[in-house]
Amino acid sequence: MEMLLIILVLLALMAIGVWLYNRLIRKRNAFRNAFAQIDVQLKRRHDLIPNLVESVKGYMSHERETLTEVIEARNSAEQVRQQASGTPGDPATMAELGRAEGTLGGVLSRLFALSESYPELRASENFRQLQEELTSTENRVSYARQAYNDAVMKYNNAVQTVPSNAVASMFNFGVVAMLEFEDREQLQQAPRVSFS
């Protein structure tokens, strides 16, 4: 009788453990999938920038420095992106990605601010198209980031709260990092600046 009771309790504990483990796996998959969405949008952003520089070059010959800066910031951001797409949620990589994207956003908004003084450039259809695509991509990145950060918060809550924290430490589920862009204020204003 007592044996039976002990077996039952053990079975129940195991069932709870399995359920908690599966819940953690589901939340981990959710934030990884959300990160994949950011990755897609960042790639789109980085692919647009060479086109932008190419179409701007002819008009903004005096701003060679800024253009080189844009290309450099884009290249290093692309490098970090490729690195980060393998390790979503890793705090060091996320911080680096945030920094790289923040720098890129800052330089880009500078470029758009400078474009104000080139009316011919602003009238070009190609430039307007690229500007719209970049604005849209900024929005997509920020919405994808919103979804990723929400997913990370849910996952972290599961990793840190009782009782799933026991299962998490048993199977090495670590706390992961949200993605914050440095220079965020400036980045958010980038499309606004380009409108006026």
Binding site: Q37, E132, E133, S136, N139, Y143, A144, Q146, A147
Partner: peptide
Amino acid sequence: RLYNVVEEVAIA
């Protein structure tokens, strides 16, 4: 622009 906006909100 409209198409882009719809795609953006679909992500959100």
